[in-house]
Design a protein around this nucleic acid. Sequence first.
DNA 1: CACTTCGTAACTACTATCATTACATGAAAA
DNA 2: TTTTCATGTAATGATAGTAGTTACGAAGTG
Lengths: 150, 150
Amino acid sequence: MKRNSRLSAVLHALLHMAERDRPMTSEELAVCLHTNPVVVRRTMAGLREAGLVISGRGHGGGWALGRPLEDVTMRDIYAALGEPMLFQMGNVTESPGCLVEQAVNHALDDAFHDAEAMLIARLGEVTLATLADDFKRRFAEHRAALKQPG
Amino acid sequence: MKRNSRLSAVLHALLHMAERDRPMTSEELAVCLHTNPVVVRRTMAGLREAGLVISGRGHGGGWALGRPLEDVTMRDIYAALGEPMLFQMGNVTESPGCLVEQAVNHALDDAFHDAEAMLIARLGEVTLATLADDFKRRFAEHRAALKQPG
DNA sequence: CACTTCGTAACTACTATCATTACATGAAAA
DNA sequence: TTTTCATGTAATGATAGTAGTTACGAAGTG
């Protein structure tokens, strides 16, 4: 199956919004994300409920950040998206009667749970401000490279 | 999409095979795994190519372990299955032109790669012998519980 | 040769993600 | 108040991955 790219997409959207001083419409965001305005609305819905973004209708409406960049981590975004399944792999049966399968499940769950905990902790260490700074660095590098080709 | 349960399934199969002194047919394994013989053959194909199991046709044929339990880790099995994608989440674009998206991808890749490395290392620490021992412990507990109900 | 068992291709069912269409709701501008 | 803009959301379709199933060929045993 296709992989879930919502976290990646909304982070992308939020950083573009951070570069603007006015709300961005779903249409504008859809252009940035190379997708459809309805997909944008659907994906951002969870963030709105979590207060991470604010949406307004009508003239001058659109999407704006609901909190300072420093106060939002990638983990917050992940949570606002409903904490989608991280792993593509899983057990055949969740609560098997077979003792062999129980032993297998236990070993796999152990490893996967630890990896999940580590990953989520890592997401919690990166704020939108971190990402915005990284973008600015890349942007400066990009401009420097254009000035001095070769 | 359904989650990939092949690792879980083949581990289950290998431990059942370890409890037998003769090859197990795909039919027998399919009963253990509550699935179809063809699914068993398909899933075990990679393990055969990796030498982790041996298959034989005709009378007395079936599947047998190709290596001692102590010599095979869950990581080996994972590799023999073709190292299927671990994560359900991914980036929208792998090599985006947009610098914002590059910053996002970099941060996410960083976290996911570390989690993947940790998980795979963990899989490498657990051998089939470890799992077999855990099964035996569970089996002993199970029998004790039956003897002394309440 | 008869029988068993694997090897594999082809087809189906199910599920998840994302795209798209259609229309209702709400808010600002004219 | 009417028009216009923009979100909110349901319904539908396209695509892809997993697993189940059928069918048949290949290879080995008795």
